[in-house]
Amino acid sequence: MANPPPSKPRRVRGGIKAQSKRGAFAERWWAKRWIAVLEGFGLGARLARGRSYARQGQVTQISIEPDGVRAEVQGSRRAPYSVTIQVKPLSVSQWRLITDAIMRTPRFAAMLLNGQMPEDIEDAFREAQCELFPQSITDVRTDCSCPDWSNPCKHVAAVYYLIGEEFDRDPFLLFALRGRTRRDILATLTLDDEPSPEIAPTRAHPAPTVPAPRPPVEHPQVNAWLLRQAGRFPFWHGSISLEDALSVVYARAAEHALTLLAETWPDD
C-alpha cells in the first residue's frame, strides 16, 4: 500500500525537543539498543518523520505511568494525538534471578546508582532467560489516536526516540518499563538493609563542640556549576534550554550576594 502524503504538523511552542541535532539519537549503548528495536520494524519514511518530529518538539507531553508510557504529540489536527507504549513485563521469578545477579556484581550497583547501565548486565538478564531489551515487535505494544493506519506511526516513533534519550540519563527507566521501579530494585538488594540516606539537603550535622573560625566562602570556578552537575532535565520541553535560561540568574545572584556580604559584614 502506498504511504499517505506527508502532512505538515502544527507548530508547537516549546515541546520536548530531542537533544541530538544530527546523526544518531542517544549516545549510550543501551539507549541505542532500545532505538534499534524501533528501527528494526522497517517503517521507512515514517521513521524519518518520527525523528524530525522528535527534533522539532512536536511531542508536548510524556509521562511514565505504572502501566506504560503515555504521551501527546501535536500533528496536523488541532487536538494532539494520544500515544501509548507498553513493553512486555518480566515475571516475578525472572526479576528475582536478575536482582540476585546484580547483587553478585557490586560494580553493577555502583553504576546503576549513578545513572549508568553496565555493559554486561545483559548477561545477568540472559541467565534469567530473558532479554533486557525488547527484541521484536511482539515485545512492544504501541497505540496512537492518529488516522494513520500504520502502527507504529510517526507519532509513536517520535515518542520512542525521546524515551531512548531519557534512557541516557536514567537507565532505571528501562527496568520500570519492564515492571520494577528503581525503588523496588534498590530495596531488594542487600545494600538497602541500612536506612537509605534521606535526600534532605539542608539537614544539619550535630553541633560541633569546639567553635572553629569561620571558613572562607568558596568562589565557584565555573558559573552555575551545580546546575551543570545536575545534568539534563528529563523530557525538557521549554523553549530554551534550562542552562541558557538560568545561567544569568546564577551569575547575577552570586554577584549580588557577594556585594551584600562585603557591605554588611566587612572587616570580619
Partner: peptide
C-alpha cells in the same frame, strides 16, 4: 536573594509549555 537578582520576564500565560512557565 536569588529571586531579587533575576530580572522579571514577560508574564507567563497558561498556553505556554509547563517548563517555560516554571522558568
Amino acid at each position: 536573594l536569588v529571586r531579587s537578582a533575576a530580572t522579571t520576564p514577560v508574564r507567563a500565560n497558561d498556553r505556554m509549555p509547563l517548563h517555560d512557565r516554571w522558568l
